[in-house]
Design a protein around this nucleic acid. Structure first.
Ligand SMILES: [Mn+2]
Ligand SMILES: [Mn+2]
Ligand SMILES: [Mn+2]
Ligand SMILES: [Mn+2]
Lengths: 220, 220
DNA sequence: AATTATTTTTAGATTTACCTAAAAATATAA
DNA sequence: TTATATTTTTAGGTAAATCTAAAAATAATT
């Protein structure tokens, strides 16, 4: 059984590994909001326990055991987020911090019954996939909105930024999950994107467009 | 803000104070499953923070601040137990340990929305009262089943023992919350009690009868 | 290849919540 | 009212997770 702290390390290593493979000490420190020296200490402990493979100065990779543990935490986190939004009427920008705590509750019975209670959801309020109890993810395809071409149509299926500020901004613009959009123009000057949504034309910055994920239906 | 550990101490002091007023170091140690020396350490810290009044060798009492904090934790514990039973179909003997963890999740929004989601329940799956968000309890009256006289009728409204073994035993006997009972005999030999429930006669030990709480309708 | 910069690790402390063993205070019994 | 037993506190230490400062390894630049 892992401690609260070990679980947080595993989850962060897992997320970092999704992008970079080998995970560096400094990257972990930044995510954990702690010092590199503390990370080195914890890494040694996780290696000791068989959660990570570690070569001095070369960073870490999760072992199978470590990966399973991390996925279990991700599963809990996302299921709790669904609970908060679907059952307790939280907004999608309000759930992350509470889920950060709930994800550490130790009870397999609890999480399986919660899963059932929620109707075995496949994705969380931000469009992130929820692994099943065996740790398997449904294969998800997406295209960043920024990569769509003028004339392309698509549905908003997720976001790659979970800050409350960003999510509230999207909410205000009506850019929520499941919405149909079409790219009507891309501004040369600043790279901002003009999109057609619910019959209205709106303009979003390049920065915003980068963090919206869509399933494109291709050209119309 | 209190730590996980501090919260557990406060809750235990609160429950012990319900019976004895001044709470002794050894009693706390027993409940916390720790050593008296550790309790002394923590007591000093809680006194420092203004949660308890402490006189050396004389035990502690909760301050207003400490009592409020404790009641908040009791509220969370009991609301989560209702959630587990009513929504996730846990049995009443399965919920305590998980609630012990859930009670420490820090979010007033969460607990208020949970309360609403559950329909503002007044009592938990064991019949224990749930304080409202201002910390007020509905006044509850009960008579121990053991104190009823032959011929008395009553409704089972609670239990004063929460062990899984005891609760499972009651379940098997059909002695669950809300059930109507009548005392038909008390055995001289061992003090066991014969009760009429759902048209059937059953015999329960004195030990069991001590821990069943009822609202008596008096003599029939 | 040598210098400089960055990353990572070690060494040594700190804090929190524990512990054991011994001393001190209080309560109970003779 | 001594003597004995119980309760509580102090003293000193351990383990987990942190920290700062300095040393060592690796990477990037001249
Ligand atoms: Mn989240
Ligand atoms: Mn999410
Ligand atoms: Mn309970
Ligand atoms: Mn209960």
């Amino acid at each position: 059984m892992q401690s609260f702290t070990e679980e947080n390390y595993l989850k962060i290593i897992y997320h970092l590994a999704e992008k970079t493979g080998n995970v560096q000490t400094n990257a972990i420190a930044e995510q954990m909001q702690t010092k590199p020296a503390s990370v080195t200490d914890m890494i040694k402990k996780l290696a000791e326990k068989g959660f990570v493979d570690y070569i001095k100065y070369q960073g870490v990779t999760l072992t199978e055991k470590g990966k399973n543990a991390a996925i279990e935490i991700v599963r809990k986190h996302r299921l709790w987020e669904v609970f908060l939004v679907d059952k307790l009427n939280f907004k999608w920008d309000e759930v992350h911090d509470v889920a950060e705590e709930l994800e550490h509750i130790k009870s397999t019975a609890l999480i399986e019954r919660l899963d059932e209670f929620l109707g075995f959801p496949k994705s969380d309020p931000h469009g992130d996939p929820i692994p099943d109890k065996n740790g398997r993810f449904a294969i998800t395809q997406f295209i960043k909105l920024i990569d769509l071409k003028v004339g392309d149509q698509g549905t908003i299926t997720g976001v790659s930024q979970h800050s409350s500020a960003f999510l509230k901004h999207l909410e205000k613009l009506g850019l929520t999950l499941g919405k149909q959009i079409e790219i009507s123009d891309v501004t040369d000057f600043d790279g901002s994107v003009e999109i057609l949504i619910a019959g209205k034309q709106i303009n979003i910055s390049r920065e915003v467009a980068k963090h919206i994920l869509t399933s494109s239906n291709g050209k119309n």
